[in-house]
Design a protein around this nucleic acid. Structure first.
Length: 269
DNA sequence: TAGAAATGTTTAG
DNA sequence: TAAACCTTTCTAT
């Protein structure tokens, strides 16, 4: 379930649970055996996220994890379970109370050890991340303003903006009533400023809740209490269902290899 | 039991 | 633009 908010949440959790102490690092599956051997037993300084990339610092070496489409972490306190299936990497630590804490990584696209130079190279390829303090939304705007590419494609380009994925793309465009097909250069500065501010707020809320909720209370079937799964989005994965605002059937089409969802009435032009 | 789909990125053509 | 890659989960047969 990885868009940027997931990675920032993981960075925070892993730092709280493991930083400042030695971590036992293993790769039961074997695909990360060499890296695990290099890091095993070393003290974790901390974990931070840039866009969808997770960076864990162990002295001069940095563990770089990218979850890709299916990667996921699980974890808990106490003793870890017997490894099962394709377990790429496992961390085991003492935990805050000494009772033990562990986390398992499966299915990641990338799990590798980088040098500081490797980290620099990685970060150089990323646009501003709305979840990082001081991120510069204007830098993204400059890229968008001189592009004829559709805004729906630009939002997914990690060199333009780091951390936005298919859900935030669809939902942000709907919230601002912008057609995904509008060329970047036709998204004016005022519109972009509002979209960036909204993105920062939406993604921070995503980190807090551990999931993406973009709908306003007045657009949900149930307006009180916890947001139901079915009420969390305006258009994402709602193909053929009535738009929550105007009732038009939500449409879908592949854009840059991913399913794009939009309301043709609210987001015309 | 098989098949499809999934919040992603890189590489090949 | 298409395919490859990685794993889990849900649906259909």
């Amino acid at each position: 379930m990885p868009e940027g908010h997931t990675l920032h949440r993981l960075a925070r959790e892993q730092t709280t649970s493991f930083a400042g102490r030695p971590v036992r690092v293993t790769s039961p599956q074997g695909r990360f055996a060499a890296g695990a051997a290099l890091l095993d037993g070393r003290v974790l300084d901390g974990v931070t996220a840039y866009g969808k990339h997770l960076l864990a610092s162990f002295g001069g070496d940095v563990l770089h994890v990218h979850l890709g489409l299916y990667g996921a972490y699980t974890g808990g306190t106490g003793s870890p379970p017997v490894p099962r299936g394709a377990l790429r990497m496992r961390w085991v630590g003492d935990g805050l109370d000494g009772a033990g804490v562990w986390t398992d990584l499966r299915g990641a696209t990338t799990c590798e050890v980088l040098t500081p130079a490797g980290v620099d190279g990685l970060l150089a390829r990323l646009g501003p991340d709305p979840l990082r303090p001081g991120a510069d939304g204007a830098a993204a705007r400059r890229r968008i303003a001189r592009s004829r590419t559709a805004i729906g494609a630009l939002l997914m380009d990690q060199t333009v903006l780091a951390g936005v994925g298919n859900v935030y793309r669809a939902e942000l465009l709907f919230r601002h009533r912008v057609s995904p097909f509008r060329p970047g250069r036709d998204v004016d500065a005022a519109r972009w400023t509002a979209m960036w501010a909204d993105l920062v707020a939406l993604m921070r809320a995503g980190v807090r809740m551990g999931r993406i909720v973009t709908t306003l209370p007045e657009h949900r079937a149930r307006r009180r209490g916890a947001v139901q799964r079915a009420d969390a989005h305006y258009v994402y994965r709602r193909t053929g269902l009535p738009c929550r605002v105007c009732g038009t059937a939500v449409r879908t089409e592949v854009m840059v290899g991913r399913n794009l969802y939009w309301c043709p009435t609210c987001q015309s032009g």
